[in-house]
C-alpha cells in the first residue's frame, strides 16, 4: 500500500471544493425551482387549495375525484394515444433519416440536419399559427390540395372535427419532435467504431446485418435517451393543444397537461391540478423505468 502524498491530498480537496463551488449556482437553482416546487406539488395535492384562502386538508379526495372525472379519464386516454403513436414513429423515423443523411457529404448532412431541426428552434406559437392556416376549414392548403386532386369531395374541418383533430395534433407534434433525435442519432452513428463495420463488411455482412449487429448496440444509449425524452415530451404535450384546439372539439384533444393547466390556472384548483401532476409524474417515471429495464435487458 502506497502512502498518499499530503500535497496531492490537499490538491484533491481543493479541486473538490472548487467543483462544488462551480456546481452551487445550478444546485441552488435546481433546489429552488425544481425540487422545492416538486415537494410543494405533492404536498398541495392533499389539500383543497385555491386562491386567497387557507388550504383545507382533504387527504386523498383529489385523487379519488380524479379517477371519477370523465374529462380526466378522456384526457388520460388521449395522452396515452399520443405517446403510443408519436414515440415509436419519432424514434423510427429519426433513426431512418439519420441513417440516410449521416452517409452524405458534410454540407448535405448539415443542411438536412438544419431542415429537420428548424421546427425545434421555431417558436411553438409560430409553428401552431402556420399549421392552423394549413388546416383551415375554409381556405387551408390541405383542403385545397385534397379537393383539387379529388382526394376529398368537400372541405374537412380538420381541427374542428373530433375524428381528425387528435390526428392533426399528433402530426404537428411529430414534425416538432424529430429534429433533436435526428441530430443525436447522426452524432451517435458517427461515433460507431468504423473498424468493426469494415471488418464485418470484409467478412461478408450485409448492410442490415452491420446495422443490427454492430451499429444498433452501440447507439442503444442514445436510443434510450431519445425514448425517455420523447416519451416525456409526448406526455407533456400542451402548447399545441392550447394554441390550436383548447382541448376540443368535445374534449377529443384534451391531454393531461392541458387539463392540469385548465384546473390550476383557469379554475384555480391548485390542489386538484397538482394531484394530476403527481399522477402524470408517476406514469412518466414508471414508463421511463420500464424503458431503462428493457434497454438494460438488451
Amino acid at each position: 500500500m502506497t502512502k498518499q502524498n499530503p500535497m496531492s491530498k490537499a490538491l484533491v480537496r481543493r479541486e473538490t471544493i472548487a467543483g462544488y463551488a462551480f456546481m452551487l449556482p445550478s444546485l441552488i437553482f435546481f433546489l429552488g425551482f425544481v425540487v422545492y416546487p416538486m415537494i410543494q406539488c405533492v404536498y398541495t395535492s392533499f389539500f383543497d387549495a385555491t386562491m386567497n384562502r387557507e388550504d383545507i386538508f382533504i387527504g386523498l379526495a383529489n385523487y379519488k375525484e380524479l379517477f371519477q372525472d370523465k374529462t380526466f379519464l378522456g384526457a388520460l386516454k388521449n395522452t396515452v394515444v399520443i405517446v403510443i403513436v408519436s414515440v415509436p414513429i419519432t424514434c423510427i423515423f429519426s433513426l431512418w433519416v439519420s441513417s440516410v443523411i449521416y452517409d452524405l457529404k458534410g454540407f448535405a448532412c448539415s443542411a438536412f440536419r438544419c431542415i429537420f431541426y428548424l421546427p425545434v428552434v421555431t417558436g411553438s406559437v409560430a409553428v401552431a399559427v402556420v399549421w392552423k392556416w394549413m388546416f383551415n376549414n375554409y381556405y387551408g392548403i390541405f383542403n385545397y390540395i385534397g379537393t383539387s386532386t379529388g382526394l376529398i369531395e368537400q372541405n374537412i374541418n380538420w381541427l374542428g372535427d373530433e375524428r381528425f383533430a387528435l390526428g392533426c395534433i399528433i402530426l404537428i407534434l411529430l414534425t416538432t419532435s424529430v429534429g433533436q433525435p435526428i441530430v443525436l442519432y447522426v452524432s451517435a452513428l458517427n461515433n460507431v467504431d468504423q473498424s468493426l463495420v469494415e471488418a464485418a463488411e470484409v467478412d461478408g455482412a450485409t448492410k442490415f446485418q452491420c446495422f443490427w449487429k454492430i451499429k444498433w448496440p452501440q447507439i442503444m444509449p442514445t436510443t434510450l435517451y431519445i425514448l425517455v425524452i420523447t416519451t416525456i415530451n409526448s406526455f407533456q404535450c400542451f402548447a399545441l393543444i392550447q394554441l390550436l384546439t383548447s382541448g376540443g372539439p368535445n374534449h377529443s384533444t384534451d391531454t393531461i397537461m392541458y387539463y392540469i393547466y385548465y384546473n390550476a390556472f383557469k379554475l384555480y384548483r391548485y390542489g386538484y391540478g397538482n394531484a394530476m401532476g403527481v399522477v402524470l409524474a408517476i406514469m412518466i417515471a414508471l414508463l421511463s423505468a420500464l424503458q431503462f429495464k428493457m434497454a438494460e435487458s438488451k
Partner: peptide, 26 residues
Amino acid sequence: RKIMALLMSFAMVCSLTACGGKDTGA
C-alpha cells in the same frame, strides 16, 4: 444515475403545477 433520471422526469412534471402552490401562512 437511474434514480436521478427518474427524479428528474418527476420533477419536470411536478414543477409546472406547483408554480400555483400557495402560501398557507397567515
